[in-house]
């Protein structure tokens, strides 16, 4: 099991992600986006950061990087893919996942801890949790507001493709607990190719190492375990 963590120019959570995965006993390797995916790639992370300086729109340029064709093929073939923060923006811009992450309602960059509720516990990324369980995860983004057409959102909800929603510490979904104005408080969704592909704006890799503090992110990254 080797997870390829793709480093774009401007990624800055790539090394943290490798370290977090390896702390869980999951083999991980940094892959430069101009290189090819290694033949033994069993999982892919699109990490956080500011690929291409967020030019045009966050994630828009990286979505057209040559390696993304390989990522799309791998996703179609069943390889688990997780997009985190900027990686979530790349995932949506490259149509791996539905919707778009755009400017926060506050028009500010926000770096804080939030609570999210597990909406669907029947995916690789959430099987360590119960549906309705509340996790505390950090966010750090200026463009994290989930936007999508109303009818497409209704279809996602009907198909149980919302992974997490922002919520209060007791699990209640309220406008106040929605840090960025995301539609229906959506913090993460599953992919077009299946539940093995997912994106989320919060950073599980920042709450995985036990030396640092809370470890609610471990269960999400354990989605890469076979």
């Amino acid at each position: 099991m080797t997870v390829a963590v793709i480093r774009f120019g401007g990624s800055n959570c790539d090394r943290d992600t490798v370290q977090a995965l390896e702390s869980l006993g999951i083999d991980a390797e940094l892959i430069w986006h101009e290189d090819s995916l290694p033949g033994d790639t069993d999982g892919i992370v699109l990490p956080g950061g500011f690929s291409y300086g967020d030019y045009l729109r966050a994630g828009a340029m990286a979505a057209h990087s040559p390696i993304m064709d390989e990522v799309r093929d791998a996703a179609e073939a069943g390889t688990p893919v997780l997009g985190i923060c900027n990686g979530a923006q790349v995932g949506c811009e490259s149509s791996l996942t539905p919707g778009a992450f755009t400017t926060n309602e506050s028009a500010r960059f926000q770096c804080e801890h939030v609570h999210v509720r597990v909406e669907n516990a029947d995916t690789p990324w959430t099987r360590q949790f119960e549906a309705g369980e509340v996790l505390e995860l950090p966010i750090a983004h200026g463009e994290g507001r989930f936007e999508i057409e109303d009818e497409r959102l209704a279809a996602l909800e009907a198909d149980d493709r919302v992974l997490f929603r922002y919520c209060e510490s007791d699990g209640t979904v309220t406008p106040e607990a929605n840090p960025n104005g995301s539609k229906h408080s959506v913090a993460g969704v599953t992919g077009e190719a299946g539940d093995h592909v997912a994106v989320l704006m919060p950073h599980p890799e920042r709450v995985t190492l036990e030396d640092i503090g809370p470890t609610d992110g471990q269960g999400i990254l354990e989605g890469f375990e076979a």
Partner: peptide, 9 residues
Amino acid sequence: ERLLANPTI
């Protein structure tokens, strides 16, 4: 279609 706009938004 392919880059300058994001048809979702």
